[in-house]
């Protein structure tokens, strides 16, 4: 009975757990188990499919097919004509992919900048923290749209600038959320253990802090994507994004709103798609956030950052299932 005299075979095998990749899969899987997640993802995928497959199947989005604001079913096509008599359906099919790409790129930018600022701020603390977070506060003080409009009106409506300005305008929010999450992680003993070996902060952040932030990062990415889409579409509406005659959902709403009585589809079709996309990404991010929080209740601490590990082994006894 003395330590070590019992053979390995006598010991119950540890339960097989999901690998790290499985963690993301599990949160997403849990999110998809809810109606919120299913509907959210379905809406997002449908709109994305229209946006990315549309350009290959639709007729030319630039050809003048019929009379301005021609009623649906005529020469201009199923959804009628727009302000110049172009095919609304063709323009809807061709006008989404740019928005999605620009919004996606802006989101990636926002996440990278925001995460870097938030995590470094949280881990270094002290003056670095104050400097970064006060800058973030200043940026947060400027309304998002005003910030973007300012940049675009000074430099001009360039695609790269839209991506950069939309990305930068969202980074402060990301930084705030990630700082809070990273602060918690930085205080964990496993991060301190690594610091006690004299490992440089950059390595600690890269190897130990950021991988622990996967859950809040997922939630934040989905949320920022939906905001980016709205913002990019809004810029196009205001004429500061994609320039005519290129087809663009945001731009279409502006171009066709004067003829809304003659052919409402010129405004309705892009509006419905944009709304569906924003609602879809929002619902999905919401579902991920909920699944992430519920992960804490399964007793699986790695799934949830906002539940502090308990010193009491009793608390770590996993419940076999999550009570609904």
């Amino acid at each position: 009975m003395e330590a070590g005299t019992i053979t390995q075979a006598d010991r119950p095998a540890p339960r097989q757990g999901p690998a790290l990749g499985g963690r993301v899969r599990r949160v997403v899987g849990d999110a998809l188990g809810t109606w919120r997640g299913k509907v959210g993802l379905a809406l997002t995928l449908i709109v994305a499919a229209i946006a990315f497959i549309g350009p290959f199947v639709g007729p030319s989005s630039l050809a003048l097919e019929g009379a301005p604001f021609e009623a649906p079913g005529g020469a201009a096509g199923t959804l009628g004509g727009d302000a110049l008599g172009r095919d609304v359906l063709a323009r809807v099919l061709d006008g989404g992919w740019r928005i999605l790409l620009i919004a996606g790129a802006a989101t990636i930018l926002a996440i990278i900048f925001g995460t870097a600022a938030g995590v470094v701020s949280a881990y270094r603390g002290g003056k670095v923290d104050s400097l970064i977070m006060r800058s973030v506060d200043v940026l947060l003080g400027i309304p998002q749209l005003v910030f973007v409009l300012m940049l675009l009106s000074v430099i001009g409506a360039k695609t790269w600038l839209v991506i950069l300005s939309v990305g930068l305008s969202q980074a402060p929010q990301v930084a705030r959320v990630l700082r809070a999450a990273a602060q918690d992680v930085s205080e964990r003993d496993y991060v301190k253990a690594v610091a006690a070996w004299g490992v440089p902060p950059r390595t600690v952040i890269r190897r130990h802090v950021v991988p622990s932030l996967i859950s809040p990062l997922m939630v934040e990415s989905a949320l920022r994507l939906s905001f980016s889409i709205i913002l990019v579409a809004g810029l196009a509406f205001l004429g500061l994004g994609t320039q005519p005659p290129t087809a663009d959902w945001g731009l279409m709403i502006n171009e066709n709103r004067v003829g809304i009585a003659a052919n409402p589809w010129g405004v309705l079709a892009p509006s419905i798609l944009l709304a569906a996309l924003a609602v879809g990404t929002n619902m999905f991010s919401d579902a991920v956030a909920r699944a992430n929080l519920a992960g804490g209740r399964t007793g699986d601490p790695s799934l949830d950052l906002f539940v502090t590990a308990s010193a009491d082994p009793k608390d770590a006894q996993p419940l076999e299932e999550v009570p609904k």
Binding site: A19, L20, R23, R188, D189, Y190, K192, A193, A196, H208, P211, S212, I214, P301, S302, A309, S310, A311, P313, A316
Partner: peptide, 16 residues
């Protein structure tokens, strides 16, 4: 080397 009090916090949960 230092060993922490709480074994629930001292190992990186994202690593095997």
């Amino acid at each position: 080397q230092y060993i922490f009090q709480n074994p629930f916090g001292s190992l990186n949960p994202t690593m095997t």
